[in-house]
Structure formats: C-alpha cells, structure tokens
Design a protein around this nucleic acid. Structure first.
Lengths: 324, 324
DNA sequence: CTGAAAGCGCTTACAG
DNA sequence: CTGAAAGCGCTTACAG
C-alpha cells in the first residue's frame, strides 16, 4: 500500500496536521520537527495524494483539451504546445479526440465535468452543444466561436487568406481559383473564402471556388478544376495537404510551377514544411494560439475580472517557398 | 456551487446512502424512491464528483501517457489511437510530452503518480529512470525496453528493416546505403541497423551507414552520402522524413528515381502517405501498437495473472509506392 | 427496502 | 510551535 500522511505522522511522531503544514510550508514549525517529518517522508517514499488535495481545494489543476484528432498535423502541434505550456504552469491535460463527432464531444464534456477539470480548451466543431454541466465551467475555444461570454482564440484567417490572394495577384496571376474542404466543420473556412472573394473583387476578378468533402472527392475535384480551367495560373488552397495534391496533379499534367501556375497552401505545420519545404503557405502561429488560449483560460479560472476583449485574432504570416 | 449527493438526497427526501445506491444500481430500491431520486438528479443537474469516487475506490480510470512530442506524426497518431481506444474502455488519458528530456520525464512521472493514475504507457527515451514512486505502478512501454517485468510493445523493427533491405536487393540494387538518425534516443535504431547489416552480409554486400543528429547535419550528411558514393543505387532511410530529404537531394542532382536510385522510408504515418504517396515505406501498425499496449496495461491493472510473454513484436508491412 | 456511521487522504480554522 | 476535530463528496459494510 502507498504510504499516507498518517504513516508519515506516525513515523515522525507528530500529528497529520503537522505533516501537512510541513508539506505546504504553512505556519511555524520547529526546525527539528520539520527535519523529522522530512526523513519520514523520504524513508517511506511518501508522495501526497493529489486526489485528496483536489477534493478539499475544489481545484484539480487539470484542463480538458478537446481536439478533433491529434493525428492531424495542426492539432498534433497545437496539443503539444498547449500541453507543454500548461505543464510549465503546473496544469495537467486530459486529452480527448472528438473526431468532430457530436456524440463523442458531449460524452467527453460529461466525463471532464465529472473529473472536475478546472477548465476546457475546445477546438472542435459542435462546441455550441454544451451540456448543462458546463454552464459554469471556464472555457476557451480555438477557431470555434460559441458566444460572447466564451473567449475565442483564432488565427486571423481573413487577413491571412487575403494576403495569400494578394500575393498571387501581385505576382501577376489572372485566373486564381480557391480550393477548399467543404466548410462544414471549420468556421475558419468561411473566413478564408470570404477573404478570397473580397480580394478578387477588389481587382475585379471573378471568383472560382471548388469545394470537396471526402478523400476521393478531393482528387476528382482537383482534376475537374484543371479540366474546366485550362487558363488557371494561381490556386489558393485551404490547407497544405490539398496544395500538395494540387501540385502533384499539376506536375502530372506537365504544368510548370511556379512559371505557369502558382500555388499557396494553408497552415504551415512543421511536418508539411519538412516534407514539402518548397510550398508557399500561410502559416498559423500555433505556439501563440496555444499560449493565448491557455493564458486567457487561466485568467477566467483565476477569476480575474475580464474586461478584456474576448476574441483574439492572431497574425498569420506567409512562408514563401518555391511554388509562387 | 455544484450540487452534491447531499443536495440530491435533501431534494428527494432520502439519505445519501440511498442516492448512492440509485447511482450505482446497488441493492434494492423501491421504484418510487428511485424515481424521486432521478427527478432530483435531473432538476439539480447533478453529476457525481469522480474525485470523491476515485478517492474511495483507489482507482481513477486514468492512464498517464508519456510520448516525446505529439507534433511528430508517429506520436500524434499513436496518441490518437491510444486515447481513442482508452476512451472506449472508459479510461481517461493525461498526456505528457517529454521531448525525451530526462528531467521532464521524471517530473511527469512524479506528477502522474501524485495524480493516482492507474497505470502508465511510456514511449520515451529514458524510461529506465523510474522514480521510487512508480515501483508498483503498472507500466507498459512502447519501443523502449526497460526490464523483464515491464511489458514492451514494439513493431518488429528487425524484420521490417530486413524486408526493406531484401526488397532493394531483390530489385537488383548493388550499392545500398542506410541513413539514420543517430541511434541515441531510439532503441529501435539499433534493430534497424542490425537488420540492414545482416541483410547485406547475407548477400555478401558491404554495409555503408550514414548517421546524423541534427537538422543541418542531416542535410550535410545526405550530400556527403551522394558525394562519396556515386554508384549508390539503393537507400534505406530510418524514417520517412529522411527519405523525403534524400529524394529531394537526388532529384536536385538529376538522379532518376526509381530507375537509377531506389529509396525506402520508414514509419508510413498517415501524413507522410498523404504528402508523399509515392514513397515506398515500411509501415508501423500504429493502431495495433496502441491496442496491444492498452490491453496489456489493463491486464496488469486488473491484476490478471500474467504468464503471457511480456514482449510484443508486431508485424510491419512494406507499402510499395513509386520510389522502388 | 432504507439510513447512520465510518472512512478514502488530505487541509484548515480553531484552540492551546 | 503543535494537535483534535471537522469537512471536501463520495461509498460501503452494518444494522434495522
């Protein structure tokens, strides 16, 4: 059996109160007593039970993190950054992969509430379906706006996408197409699309948009795009993986990049930069997103009066490679 | 304040004992009482506090997961698979990214012990440095052998690597080189390397090995490899990212793949298959690794007598693309 | 079928 | 400087 504070008290010949005070550096303790307690702790290999502490304090120093899938490069990195930053602030992370399934999300929410997490960071689609249990739980969302009361942390997708379109335009592209996943799960999709359309409109160019939902459909849609737009000379993609697929198809068709066609991706995760360093992409500030989300969640948890704006739109940066 | 079992008892006009029995479906309860309790629960929006339950049962249904970094595609996927499978078995995951730093590892181990996790899944380098606290904690490691008592789950790296070498040989390669990260952190590196050497020896071919440790060094080493071995016609890489770098450099030098040079990577994660579908690679059965690790951990946690072998070497499969 | 009591491992007023 | 007591929110023998 694991030793408890009682065992320590017995061995050190003091009360549990005293042991607790030594442990928490609280009140006055004679040097001798303190020393005795510490030797007992060491001899017994005693480690305080955080469950009991949390129960008393009504604070677990644990945060629930909901993401769709850590296999996805963006979320894998985001999870890393959030967990690492939390650890530096003495918070633990309970990780939940929701796959954007509404039933999983609400089950996880219930589990996390039951686990008495101090707060929630959510970057998952159906965030608006909060159980009653979460009414008073501090929450911050990433990329998914829920309500005025819940802080939102997000890349400035509109501005980032506008930069992409403007880069293509400035390089002389005349026929720029936007290819995207179907904007069902991601609120950011709408922003990207709007930015593309606005950017085109300003230059009095016609918007051409292709959207797909599944894997096979993606390939078909890309082929269709090339078939139907032989004059295309610029493609802005909603993510790097799509951009890679576009580039592959273009090469297959003998279209030279960046001479005849310029391509820009989106996200700029570490993996895609390593695997496709040549890709020009709009990079999300993942580390900054993580830190901002954690900080503003902790502000709510610590009950700091929050008159700050509760939306953060973080700057995106174009990483220019060789595809533009 | 969150309602407690006491509030429910008060509202339902029964004792907390009775509420608890309703909650846990234990003992006999009259239909009427049960109904009353449920309406009280619903009206109050009551959710049991798992902290208190865990404290009593000495069981948290929580597992600590230590990986180097979820940004890495392999660990991002592994984390997803482990967490998802655990969730289906009603276990939570506390995630820790160790970056293979020994000090972080041992700090996380202490935190997890304090959190009373029921067990640990470790896939991190210094696993042999267990604190005293973990002496009796059920542990399973992935890819890092610690001792006979601790189950190890691993891909069959030796056999997988041998397959790779044999594939290159069977395709007629005469000068096969092995490029790898410096085998400091990964025990698997040694196995891969041994398999390469054995495979070469069997065909009476000379082994040529290049190893690097950092990012810049990788690039230099790859260049050196080509400079020093103009006759190279096969390269087996310790991971897909290295393989991609090799391919990029080969193309730059005008070496045609797979005609003049065949390249095989290692890991076969989802991202690299999406971003570089043409790469031939030795794929790790990530889903199987996750399930095996979780299952054998739960066996230990559930105290099932374990006369089973405590090492699992899971089969790897070559995914043949267009680089061989 | 139901409740009072003790206890899981801690912490903190309170009293001395 | 130190300890006895109550309590965090549960559960489970035990008794009726």
């Amino acid at each position: 059996m694991k030793p408890t504070i009682r065992d320590v008290a017995r061995v050190a010949g003091v009360s549990t109160t005293t042991v607790s005070r030594v442990l928490n550096n609280r009140g006055y303790i004679s040097k001798e007593t303190r020393a005795n307690v510490y030797t007992a702790i060491n001899n017994l290999n005693y480690l305080p039970n955080d469950l009991a502490r949390s129960l008393f304090h009504k604070k677990t120093n644990t945060i629930g993190l909901l993401v769709p899938n850590t296999s996805d490069a963006f979320f894998g990195e985001l999870t890393f950054e959030i967990q690492s930053f939390c650890a530096s602030l003495d918070y633990k992370i309970i990780l939940c992969n929701t796959l954007n399934h509404i039933d999983k999300e609400s089950k996880y929410l219930e589990i996390l509430s039951g686990s008495q997490v101090d707060g929630l960071i959510m970057s998952t689609s159906n965030s608006n379906i909060l159980n009653n249990y979460e009414q008073n739980l501090p929450i911050v969302t990433i990329d998914h706006y829920i309500s005025k009361k819940i802080p939102l942390v997000s890349s400035d997708h509109y501005s980032g996408s506008l930069q992409a379109v403007e880069l293509l335009l400035s390089k002389g592209c005349q026929h720029i197409i936007y290819v995207s996943t179907f904007p069902a799960f991601e609120q950011s999709s709408t922003l990207k699309r709007n930015a593309y359309e606005d950017g085109m409109k300003r230059q009095e160019k016609r918007s051409i948009i292709y959207e797909y939902s599944g894997y096979e459909e993606k390939y078909k849609v890309i082929c269709k795009l090339f078939d139907e737009n032989t004059e295309v000379d610029g493609i802005f993609c909603s993510d790097d993986i799509t951009a890679t697929a576009v580039i592959t198809e273009a090469k297959k068709r003998g279209i030279s990049i960046p001479n005849h066609l310029k391509v820009i991706g989106y996200n700029g995760t570490g993996v895609s930069q390593i695997l496709c360093p040549e890709l020009t992409t709009v990079q999300q500030p993942i580390n900054l997103i993580a830190k901002t989300a954690v900080k503003s969640l902790l502000e709510v948890i610590d009950g700091e009066i929050n008159t700050n704006p509760t939306k953060f739109y973080l700057p995106m940066k174009i990483m220019e490679g060789k595809t533009t």
